[in-house]
Design a protein around this nucleic acid. Structure first.
Lengths: 152, 152
DNA sequence: ATACGTCGGTTGCAAAATCAAACTCGCTAC
DNA sequence: GTAGCGAGTTTGATTTTGCAACCGACGTAT
C-alpha cells in the first residue's frame, strides 16, 4: 500500500499522496459537514460524478472514509469519516484560515466554538503553548542522505 | 484573477485553487527549507522540470512566491516565499502532523521549537485557548442559498 | 580553443486524467 | 404508466501530466 514517492522522504508528500488529489479534500469537507450521500457531495463540491466516484474509492482504501450500505434493495450507500478523516479537520481549518486571508475577499463559512466565540484558529507547540512562528522552528531531517538542502 | 469556483463557496476551495495543484505545496515546502534554486527544488520534490516551471509561475502569480534574478550574466533566478507563502507553514505543519500519524510509519523530519522541545503542533481557538475538537465546532454558512447540507 | 559541466529552463510527444452530459438499474410515489 | 430518486457508469472530447531530449549562455578544466 505504501508507495515509493519521488523526492525527499516526507510526511507532507505522503499525506498529499493520500488526500492531495483534486476534489479529495473537498469531499472530506462535505462529509465532515454531515453530507453523507453521493449526490449531495457531488453538488456541494462541484466535482464531476465519475471523478467523485474515483476519489471516494481511494479515500476509502486510504482509510479516511468508510462506505456503508444503508439500503439493500435498491442498493444505496453513504459515507462517513473515520478517525483519520476526522483528524483532517486540522488541515481543513488551516487551509480555511489561509484561504480566508489570502484567497477570498470575505469568508463564506465561520465556525462557532463551544466557548461562544467564532473560531480564530492558531497553531501552537503543545509543549510550551506558544504560537508557532516560522523563525522558531528548526527542521531536522532524519532520512539518511537528505539534509535540508538535498541529497549529498 | 478571482475565478468562479464550482460547488459551495468556500475558502478551502479557494485556497486549493491557488496551491492545490500537484507539486505546488511540495515546492513551497522546499523553498521554505531555504532551497531557492530551480534544480534543488526539482530534485527534492521529484517534480518533472516542466511541471515545476508551470507551478512556480502560478504560485508566483498567486502571490505565494517571488522570483528574483540573482545573476545578470548568465541569467539566473531564485525563488523565495512571500508573506502569504510563509503563512502556508501552518498548512504544511498540519499536513505533516497528519501524515506522521496516518500516512507513514515514522516521521522523516522533526522540528525543534525555540522552547527546546520537538514541535508537537496543535490547533487552538485563540479566544479561549482550548484545543479544537471536531465536536466543539458549529459551522455557519454565510453564502446565501447554501446551508451545511447544500443549496435549497 | 576545445571540451565539459551548470543552471534554468523549452520542446515534442504519448499516456493518463479530467470534464460535461447522457445513460442505467432498481426501486418508490403518484 | 410515468416521473423521480440515488448511486453510480458510459461516452467522447479536452486537458494535464510525465518523460526525455534539447537549448543557450555562461564558467572551468585541459
Amino acid at each position: 500500500m505504501r508507495e515509493e514517492l519521488p523526492g525527499r522522504p516526507c510526511s507532507v508528500a505522503a499525506a498529499l499522496n493520500l488526500v492531495g488529489e483534486k476534489w479529495s479534500l473537498l469531499a472530506v469537507r462535505e462529509i465532515g459537514f454531515g453530507n453523507r450521500r453521493f449526490d449531495q457531495i457531488a453538488r456541494n463540491t462541484g466535482a464531476p460524478r465519475d471523478r467523485l466516484t474515483a476519489r471516494l474509492r481511494t479515500l476509502e482504501s486510504a482509510g479516511v472514509i468508510e462506505r456503508r450500505q444503508y439500503s439493500q434493495r435498491p442498493p444505496r450507500y453513504e459515507y462517513q469519516l473515520t478517525e483519520a478523516g476526522r483528524e483532517l479537520r486540522t488541515v481543513l481549518q488551516a487551509l480555511r484560515a489561509w484561504g480566508d486571508k489570502w484567497a477570498v475577499s470575505s469568508p463564506a463559512t465561520v465556525f462557532t466554538h463551544s466557548c461562544g466565540h467564532d473560531v480564530d484558529p492558531a497553531m501552537i507547540c503543545r509543549h510550551c503553548g506558544a504560537e508557532l512562528a516560522a523563525e522558531d522552528l528548526t527542521p531536522h531531517v532524519l532520512a539518511p542522505g537528505w539534509s535540508r538542502e538535498g541529497p549529498s
